[in-house]
Simulated assay, not measured.
Amino acid sequence: MSSEGWEEQYGGGQTSGAWAGSSDPQQNNFFDPNNTVNFGQEQHFQSFDYTSSSNYQPTVTSVSSTPSMFVPGPIMNDMENGGGINEEDEPPLLEELGIDPNAILQKTLNVLNPRRSTDPAMLQDTDLAGPLVFCLAFGSLLLLSGKLQFGAIYGVGLLGCVALYGLLNLMSTNGVGLGVVISVLGYCLLPIVGLAGLNVMLSLQGIVGAVLAAAAILWCSWSASKLFVTALAMHHQQPLVAYPCALVYSIFALITVF
């Protein structure tokens, strides 16, 4: 086949653009690399208006205030709402433990000075820190003098507190709690603790020891009865309350001397 026949058959001589072929779309299937007329010159770009972006308002999708099963609710900040506690506003450690050093000091002064006026409301506080310290000090002083009596101290003390608790509830109309009885009897043990301290330095088995022991028993029973009468408003009944208190403290005095 000749070149003329090839061009006549496939329309090579009728190309007018980049693609060779006739006006028939079925024959316009070949590309002429030599013809670059109007190739890549008529490019149309779409123009965008960027000035309208200032009027753009995003759509806020409302979220239900009730959290779903898998979406946690909003976390409230206690510090922003004023519900938090700063380090400066935290109570002291002794106050968190229920120990009031001022109340312990006031009750100790009332024991050392039985004539001192006492606030009845202060005696309703069941403070056991002071009695525990005094009992440990009493047992430690007895241990220094060669007497291991911790079990006797706590056993006699508990038995005396329960007996006096029942007696005071029978004698008074207001009634008294067991914690109050333990607190008062424990604080009033202080003169016996002083007697045990003297026993470490000198022997009390004699006339001097008997006199000091009697004075300590009288001091403890008078202070305890005075506190009970003030707390329970048992006027003119202090001698009746002082007698069972003296029996309890007599046992502690005998443990100290002998």
Rank of each mutant, 00 (worst) to 15 (best):
G11H: 04
L94M: 10
V257I: 11
K147L: 08
Q9Y: 12
P91R: 08
C245F: 02
S3F: 08
P74Q: 06
F228H: 04
N110H: 05
G194M: 07
S47K: 13
D49H: 06
P120F: 05
G139M: 06
E4S: 07
P33K: 14
T15N: 13
C188W: 01
V180N: 14
P58V: 06
L164C: 07
A210R: 04
S52E: 13
L123I: 03
L167V: 14
G83M: 11
A213K: 01
P120G: 07
E87F: 10
G175R: 03
F45N: 02
A216F: 00
F134N: 15
K226M: 01
G13V: 05
F150I: 11
S183M: 03
S62C: 00
A18Q: 10
S64T: 01
L170K: 09
C188V: 08
E7P: 01
L136F: 10
P33N: 09
T36M: 09
N38L: 03
V193D: 09
L227D: 13
I207T: 09
M234Q: 13
A242P: 07
S23M: 09
T51D: 13
D78Y: 05
V200Y: 08
I255Y: 06
L132S: 11
G5S: 15
V241N: 06
Y50V: 01
S62G: 03
S203G: 15
S62H: 08
A103G: 13
G179E: 07
Q238C: 01
V193S: 05
L168T: 11
Q41H: 10
L232K: 02
Q205M: 05
F138M: 10
N77L: 06
T230M: 01
A214I: 03
A215E: 05
L148E: 09
S2N: 15
V241M: 04
Q205D: 15
G179D: 10
F134P: 01
V200N: 05
Y243R: 06
L254S: 14
M171R: 10
S62P: 07
L132G: 13
S64F: 00
A242K: 02
S65L: 12
P244C: 04
E8A: 14
V111I: 08
M1K: 06
S3K: 05
P91V: 03
G175K: 02
N35F: 07
